[in-house]
Design a protein around this nucleic acid. Sequence first.
RNA 1: UCCCCGAUAGCUCAAUGGUAGAGCGAGCGGCUGUUAACCGCUAGGUUGCAGGUUCGAGUCCUGCUCGGGGAGCCA
Length: 478
Amino acid sequence: MTWLRVCDALNAQPGTKTTLKGWVRTRRDSKAGLSFINLNDGSCFADVQIVAPADLPNYENEVTKLTTGCSIEATGELVESKGKGQAVELKADSITVLGWVDDPDTYPVSAKRHTFEYLREVAHLRVRTNTFGAVARVRNCLAQAVHRFFHERGFSWIHTPIITASDAEGAGEMFRVSTLDLANIPKTGDGHLDFSEDFFGREAMLTVSGQLNVETYCAALTNVYTFGPTFRAENSNTSRHLAEFWMIEPEIAFADLEADMKLAEDFLKYLFEAVLEERADDMDFFAQRIEPTAIDRLKHVIDSDFKRVSYTEAIAILEEANTPDKKGRQKFEFPVSWGSDLQSEHERYLTEEHFKAPVIVHDYPKDIKAFYMRLNGPDKAGPDGRETVAAMDVLAPGIGEIIGGSQREERLDVLDHRLDEMDLPKEDYWWYRDLRRYGTVPHAGFGLGFERLVQFVTGMGNIRDVIPFPRTPGQAGF
RNA sequence: UCCCCGAUAGCUCAAUGGUAGAGCGAGCGGCUGUUAACCGCUAGGUUGCAGGUUCGAGUCCUGCUCGGGGAGCCA
C-alpha cells in the first residue's frame, strides 16, 4: 500500500486515496459521531487532520483512547475539509495503532507548553514538539544548502580528520583520545606519561579545526571546504558555546582577503535565501513565536551590502561612542584602545547600534591573531606603524561573531618569523611549512560555526537548542 | 573558571516562620465538524540532597548536587 508524507498529503488533490503514518499531536472527540486527530510526521510544520468516524471497528476501544505521542497509520480518502483551519483532511476508513503511549499521565512532552530547559532533559523526545521539529528541518535545510552552494561553485568537500596527532592547531583546549588503561597508566623513566604505549604511539587529540589539514587540499584542488564536527574542551558555559559543534571552513587558492570577504557575504546570503524559500512554514513559526524579526532580518541581510570597516576604523567609532557623558559615565564597561581585542559589548555596538547590519571588521593587530594569518604591508599599519594581519570577522546582530577568517601567510620566511615570535616549534608544523616550500600560492579562508548560523536564522537564544544532543561541560547524556 | 538567580504535583508556577494550592496535562462524565476546544468531577506531593536554628521550616542558616542568565575564551 502506498502512503504519503504529511507534507505531500496536504498538497494532494481531494479524492486521493492514501495512507498516512505519524505521531498523534492531539485528539478531539465529537459526540456527532467522530473524532479529530492531528497527525504529524515531521515532513513539514503543519499537522494533517484525520477525521475518524465512530463506525470504525476499533473506534470505542482504540481511537478514543489515543493520546499525544501515539503512533498510528490511517487509510482513507483526502477530502476538502468541512471545518476551518485546513484545506484538506483525511476521512479515515481504518486506523491502526502502531504504538501506544505507556502511561499518558507521565508522557514527557504532553500537549502543553514546556520550557526549553525542561525539554533538554528529554532530548530524545523534544524533537516531537513544534519548536524542535522546526529547528531540525531548518538545520537540515541549511546543511544541504551549504553543500549545494559550494558544489555549484566547484568546491570539493574534504573530509579532514577528527583525530589529530598534535596540538599544533592552537585554537583552544583539546580532548585527549586514548586507549590507555586509566587505572594503570604507563610511565616513562622520568615519570611522564608514556604515549608510545598508546593506540597511535603518540599523544592524540580531537580536532579543534580542520583548517590546517584542508589547506593541503586547497594547495592542489584550489577551492575546498570542510564541514564536520569540531571539539573544544574549554570550560565555557554560555548560550553560544558547545564542546562539540559543527564547523564549515572553506579555503580558496589564488585569493586574498577581499575575495575571502566576498565569499563569506555571498555564502550567508545564499543560505538565507535557501531557508526562506524552502522552510517558509518553519520560519513563519519562528517569527510568530520565537523572534519577531526572524524573517525580516534575513531579508535585510540578503538585500544589503555587508558593511566593511577596518579594525582601526572600528576602534575610532568605538572611541567616539565611548566619549564620557556629562556625568562622566562611559558607554562601555571595558576600555577601547588600539591593540586590544574587541569585547562582546563592542561587537554588539558595531553591528546592532552603529551599522544595524552585518559588519565585517578586517585587518586586525597581529598580536591578537593567530600565527598563520598573513602579515600586512605598511599601507595597512595602525597607529605608530603597528603591524596588522589580513584577518576578518563577520559580526551579526544578536549573535556576535559568526565567521572568523583570514588570508593565510604563504611566504615561508615570514611564517617562520611568526612561529619564532610566538614560540611555536617549527618541527610540529613541518608539513604545513612544506606547502610554502613547494609551489606556494596566496590563499584565504574562514570558519563558520554551524550552530551559530542556525541560531541566527531561527532566533533561538541558546545554542543547546539548535543541535540534537548538546555536549557542554558536565553534560553528555543521550 | 568568576559573578548573579533558581530547584514545590507529569509540566508551568503560587503559598507573612503556623493545615502545601492553582492552571495546564492525565483519568472519568457532559457538550460540540472539532482544531490552544468548552463545562463538571477525580486522582496526583518524603517541597533537589545532607545537616542546623525554632514549640513549629516549602519559607531562616551552612554545605553539597543540578539547572539557568551574564562574563571570559571563541565558532
